[in-house]
Design a protein around this nucleic acid. Structure first.
Lengths: 117, 117
DNA sequence: TCCAGTAACTTGTAAAATACAAGTAACGGG
DNA sequence: CCCGTTACTTGTATTTTACAAGTTACTGGA
């Protein structure tokens, strides 16, 4: 579904998928190993729950994220990045680097890794 | 003006500045050598003029873009990236690469460079 | 001198997206 | 049987975006 692109510029087309304030945060969480809906909700930025649900569906429809039911009763789901989704990692890393180097009081990759443990 | 950030994650803070469908297209144009308001308006994505004006002001307020009056009468202005703005180039390049490799019918950097001439 | 044209915007408003609060379904554990 | 948890959905107010039109400050040509 290319549903009428603005142009065939790869940057423009990419922004039509991930160009907003929340989508890349979900992808960040997935890269950091988070898997479930409630884990995404618990991230410090407090994404509104309807936005989270909508973004996860969008990302699935674009083949960036996959949803697996890992338990029958009660039903539980794990989200994960596809190869196409994992390929976004360089975009995330470039943003992380820029943010850390150019915006005051932002964490480095090392700070974040330390907090994971 | 950090005007109440969602968190101190560098990705989140970066997205609060450039996280939308238009801002990075303006930065793309600046990287490609465009300088004036009307050149940005003429890009194939057809950015609404009020959005363009608002984004240019935002980018100036964040020290990413600078506006120079290069002519008195009639007044004419050239926009350009600051060092902080130029540092976003890796983000753009990563998006360009992802888009070209993962979205159908998008151009490569080489295609784009060819069209410039 | 008057008029069309261009650059760089601003203003008004309708439509769409987002934020916030509340509610629902399907359990499991005490 | 009631409380808590996961994974959402629904409704509505607020904010953002899109589209159209208008403004200011000129230049160049008839």
């Amino acid at each position: 579904m290319p549903d009428s692109r603005r142009s065939n510029c790869p940057v423009s087309c990419t922004l039509e998928i991930i160009g907003d304030k929340w989508t890349l945060l979900v992808i960040r969480d997935l890269i950091m190993g988070k898997k479930t809906y409630s884990e995404f909700e618990q991230s410090p930025e407090s994404i509104p729950t309807n936005i989270l649900a909508e973004r996860l569906k969008r990302l699935q429809s674009h083949g960036i994220v996959r949803r697996n039911q890992y338990q029958e009763r009660p039903p539980r789901y794990a989200y994960e990045l596809t190869d196409k989704g994992k390929a976004l990692k360089p975009v995330l890393l470039a943003m992380m680097k820029w943010g850390h180097e150019n915006l005051a009081d932002t964490l480095s990759l090392e700070d974040i890794r330390r907090m994971q443990k």
